[in-house]
């Protein structure tokens, strides 16, 4: 494996780790109204956050087992769909996580102040 490939693989892993932490917050934030999995993926994608189905479905199951989501099957449409809705416990957790997120982004903005972003650098070139 070339050095460039190694760096690229490492970058992908780091990006995945970075994103993994925010997926819970992102999913909870979009489930104040009940949604089935694919609708949630679309909702997140519309707002700019792409998430793989293979990642989202297990995450929804985990959040449900932790009591942060409720779910029920709806068989009225063309096919059965499992709808998820944030639970009262999930709502409290979402508020706490949102506070934590805002505080973190403030700190990170200060820490990253002056560090150029690759895309922006390319644009300016």
């Amino acid at each position: 494996m070339s050095k460039e490939n190694e760096l690229s693989e490492m970058y992908n892993k780091l990006t995945q780790e970075l994103r993994r932490g925010i997926l819970v917050l992102a999913a909870l934030s979009q489930l104040k109204e009940e949604k089935y999995g694919y609708a949630l993926i679309n909702s997140l994608a519309e707002k700019g956050l792409d998430i793989e189905q293979g990642t989202l479905y297990p995450l929804l199951r985990r959040l449900e087992s932790q009591g942060l989501l409720d779910s029920e099957w709806n068989v009225e449409g063309s096919r059965p769909r499992r709808y998820y809705l944030i639970s009262p416990e999930g709502t409290r957790t979402l508020e706490d996580l949102a506070g934590e997120w805002r505080s973190l982004t403030n700190v990170m903005e200060k820490l990253l102040d002056g560090i150029s972003i690759e895309g922006e650098q390319n644009e300016s070139n």
Partner: peptide
């Protein structure tokens, strides 16, 4: 069974 039903539904939706 539950996960399989949900996966099938999701795959067909997509």
């Amino acid at each position: 069974a539950d996960i399989k039903t949900e996966l099938l539904s999701s795959v067909v939706d997509t």
